[in-house]
Design a protein around this nucleic acid. Structure first.
Lengths: 237, 237
DNA sequence: AGCCGAATTTAGACGCGTCTAATTCAAAAG
DNA sequence: CTTTTGAATTAGACGCGTCTAAATTCGGCT
């Protein structure tokens, strides 16, 4: 049996490998898991013995096929639980992450199966993150990009929100920014602020760290291919 | 924070205190938790330091008020989870115990609250065991007794089934013996076997260890106060 | 009263996951 | 081709929960 801790390490390695594109440094892993580097080193040794990671001493680690399978299984648990808490138990978008972070290690395969059935094999969790199916690759970024890479006039749909801070998520929810939300970029201020107009409602301003966390996909323009400054109530200053 | 292990010890002490009526011996505790006596001793020391049990060296332990509160909280979690798995996720009667045994230590108070709400504050779990509410006493045996204490002709209703073995529970379920089932004791064979006739259906034979595990309450007789041998289709031999 | 045996506790050890302090390594800078 | 420096590893320790083997204690029996 794998301990919850080991599962946490594998999950972290999986994530960091994606983000950093390649092998994961001990210090990165330690930082992500909030432990000291020696702690990470000793865990890496155990993971290596168990054949879950490949290690290049003084370089870093990579998941083996088996390690990746475990990582994806844990991530699947996490996202299924989030979806379940949100859809079946009325949890708030902001609350699901922490509960799932613990439960992901303690549910049986039976539980996983029954929850997935009940939810009708969902493809994404409440944050818009894909729920891996088997040992297969979950991500398909095709056509996605970060909101921070867009400019005024772009008409977009929120695909995912990578933020996990409950306060911030609650705020975004209240302002109407969740996966599925459609909006147009209205203004980009030079002080690291983007203002967007949500289709059918008002505007919201978002600082850089938020626009970087929001993943979007381009939408067909409502009409023609007008690039900007044509929305009803434009600039007042 | 209390570890899952500590919670297990407290739960076990609570149960043994009930059963044995009084302080719990180290060896009993060790046996129930499947550890060696020295292990139990060292845990008892920690529990004592934390003020969760009172210890009389070489005698045994008793829960303090605080320890009992924790034990009841864990038992509440366990039984709510069992009920939830059974009623909302379609789990089988026999399967719920093991899953609950783990999850009981890992759900948040928020989860407990939402599950209880969803189930409409249930009073008993699928085995017929009462779900403690707060720190209050859960058991109210008034009018209850063990099926093994009854005799031929008694008309009874199953209140609880104390067995936890999945195989046996599946069998009992298939034979129609679950909390709520009404039946009449038809015959008691001298080889440790009791045959009962379930109201509206057929008969089932049950060995001693099963009749001891079934908790029942007496039912008003269908008619008059006839003591036995008067049911429509009585003895054929 | 004293002994015996069973239950309990104490001693000492181990693996897990963690830490701090000390050491070693590798890679960049001179 | 050295030196420097920052990252990584090794050394040694600790608390948890567990074990086996060795005391110890309690209670009952003669």
């Amino acid at each position: 049996m794998l301990s919850a801790k080991m599962e946490d390490y594998l999950k972290a390695i999986y994530t960091l490998e994606r983000e950093g594109g390649g092998s994961v440094a001990t210090s990165r892993l330690a930082e992500k898991l909030e432990v000291t580097p020696p702690t990470a080193t000793s865990m890496i040794e155990k993971l290596t013995e168990r054949g879950l990671v490949d290690r290049e001493k003084y370089k870093g680690v990579t998941l083996t096929r088996e390690g990746e399978t475990v990582a994806l299984e844990v991530i699947r648990h996490h996202r299924l639980i989030e979806t379940f808490l949100s859809e079946e138990l009325g949890y708030d978008w902001a609350e699901v992450h922490e509960e799932a972070e613990i439960l992901e290690h303690h549910i049986s395969e039976e539980f996983e199966r029954r929850v997935a059935d009940r939810l009708d094999q969902p493809a994404v969790d409440p944050h818009g993150d894909p729920i891996p199916n088997d040992a297969l690759e979950p991500i398909d970024d095709a056509g996605e990009s970060s909101l921070s890479d867009h400019g005024e006039g772009d008409h977009l749909e929120v695909v995912r929100v990578r933020d996990r801070d409950p306060e911030e998520l609650t705020y975004l929810d209240r302002e109407g920014i969740t996966p599925g939300t459609r909006f147009t970029v209205e203004e980009i201020a030079p002080i690291g602020l983007m203002t967007v107009r949500i289709d059918g409602t008002g505007t919201v301003s978002l600082p850089d760290h938020i626009t970087e966390a929001i993943q979007v996909r381009p939408l067909e323009e409502p009409r023609a291919e007008s690039t900007a400054l044509e929305t009803d109530e434009s600039t007042q200053s």
